[in-house]
Amino acid sequence: MKYIILIVLLLSTFLLFFEGLKNDPKLIPSNLISKKIPKFKLPSLDNRSFEDSDLRTKDLKLINFFASWCPPCKVEHSNLIKLSQRFKIFGIAKKDTEKNIETWFSQMGNPYSKIGFDHDGMVSINWGVYGLPETFIIDKEQKIIYRHVGAITEKDMKKIKLILDKNK
């Protein structure tokens, strides 16, 4: 009997660690999933303003937190441009300047329908953003349904497209 208890106990611990090995400890789930988008109001690239009401449209959209000083943001740029052909992508630039963004876009194109400037990073905090870039998918009811952390690679594209198609 005691041997059985011992073996069951050890094997379950083993399995626990084994499963634990598969997880990436650095990936943190968003606390905002299936919640309404937070309110915000930011100065925008076109010298007007970008606020949460701009997202109140009856379609699926993406919101991307980025910065021109962030190297992985440049990696995902071409993929964002591909996505922007089918979906609206809004951008929030963290601690960035108009000049830097415009130089960047003149070289690589602009996937964003609208860009807001989060100069002090507080809007990013309201969205629970912890590293750039981060991409949120927002459904027709202004609810956040998915968050992707880090650059969107080809592999991530498939997953994101799947989610977008499912919620269409």
């Binding site: 094997l11 083993f14 660690f17 084994f18 634990g20 090995l21 598969k22 997880n23 400890p25």
Partner: peptide, 25 residues
């Protein structure tokens, strides 16, 4: 093994983690 987030962690390598886990068992 990189199973936990730690300041001192070595580069993550799940195959090594698996092997040590096996030794441990």
């Amino acid at each position: 093994s990189g199973v936990l987030v730690s300041v001192h962690a070595f580069a993550n390598d799940p195959s090594r983690g698996l092997f040590i886990l096996f030794l441990l068992l």
